[in-house]
């Protein structure tokens, strides 16, 4: 009787304490938010003032209000959403077409030294070629269409994912292989219970870098032979000297990168709950 009472008391105490902790956390969180939002807002305000006073060249740096105006315009005409869906298709398509084989070949190279030895020279020879340098060749082979753009992005993603996945398997602490052997794991068991989960953190690093690469390459890929897309819009704004529209595209690219990072982080948290944060 007495005992449970004491227990209850102490547990309410703990509750109160955790409530206090939570409050503390919320406060620091909102503080942090305020601190972090100060500098972007300040820059926007100063930028607007400088533009209004003609202290900066608004041909190159249009005022935020002008950019906002252009954004509304692109939105209401439906151009922006169309650009976005076209580019998303190419980015995600290229990302998947590149990342999946990159992951599979990377894992295979990490797991089987023979395959690693055979493929290493090819990878080492082709990896350093800047992906942009390959673009004209890809354009000749595939023509100027969606497929060609997907291939450009896929090649960039492929190598990054492959390198990181292979490194993830190879750099796994050898002791885990000893444990697997000592506890009777077959080769297949080893791959599934040790190599693959052990390489996951590096695989995700590869996927994140691959996504960054995809965003970089979409702009280049949409420079030629495109009639829509975020990257195309940037080049088109250049041609018709519509700088505010160009800035709108920058913002969209930045948001895209941010959203992709958040999505990959979320998936990573779900798949790798054991990773220290």
């Amino acid at each position: 009787m007495n005992n449970t009472n004491v227990l209850k008391k102490s547990s309410t105490k703990i509750n109160e304490k955790s409530k206090k902790d939570k409050k503390l956390k919320d406060e620091t969180k909102s503080n942090k938010f305020i601190q972090q939002i100060i500098s972007p807002i300040a820059i926007l305000i100063i930028w607007e003032i400088l533009a209004d006073l003609k202290l900066i060249d608004t041909r190159f740096f249009p005022a935020p209000s002008m950019i906002f105006h252009s954004l509304i315009n692109l939105l209401t005409t439906g151009i922006l959403l169309n650009d976005l869906s076209v580019s998303l298709f190419r980015i995600i398509g290229g990302f998947i077409v590149g990342a999946v084989p990159g992951l599979i070949i990377g894992l295979t190279m990490g797991l089987f030294p023979i395959i690693r030895n055979i493929l290493d020279p090819i990878v080492a020879a082709t990896y350093p070629i800047p992906k942009l340098a390959l673009m004209p060749l890809i354009m000749i082979i595939f023509g100027l269409n969606d497929l060609e753009k997907i291939v450009v992005i896929a090649i960039g993603t492929f190598f990054i994912v492959l390198m990181n996945t292979a490194a993830g398997v190879i750099n796994l602490d050898k002791i885990y292989m000893d444990v697997a052997r000592n506890y009777g794991a077959s080769k297949k068991d080893y791959y599934l219970t040790v190599a693959l989960p052990g390489a996951l953190p590096m695989i995700f690093t590869g996927l994140k870098l691959g996504m960054g690469m995809a965003l970089l390459l979409i702009v280049a890929a949409e420079m030629n032979g495109a009639s829509s897309g975020i990257g195309y819009r940037i080049w088109e704004s250049y041609n018709i000297f519509d700088i505010p529209a160009m800035f709108v595209s920058f913002i969209i690219m930045s948001i895209l990168g941010y959203v992709f990072t958040i999505i990959l982080d979320l998936i990573e948290k779900l798949i790798i709950p054991w990773k220290h944060s």
């Binding site: 002791i175 000893d178 219970t193």
Partner: peptide, 26 residues
């Protein structure tokens, strides 16, 4: 034989239960 390794060497990607069950599962 089963070894208790000097470095513990339990798998970071498995929870306690699955780590202990490893040999039995294999």
């Amino acid at each position: 034989n089963s070894m208790v390794f000097q470095e513990h060497a339990i798998f970071p990607w498995m929870d306690v239960k699955n780590n202990i069950a490893y040999g039995l599962k294999m």
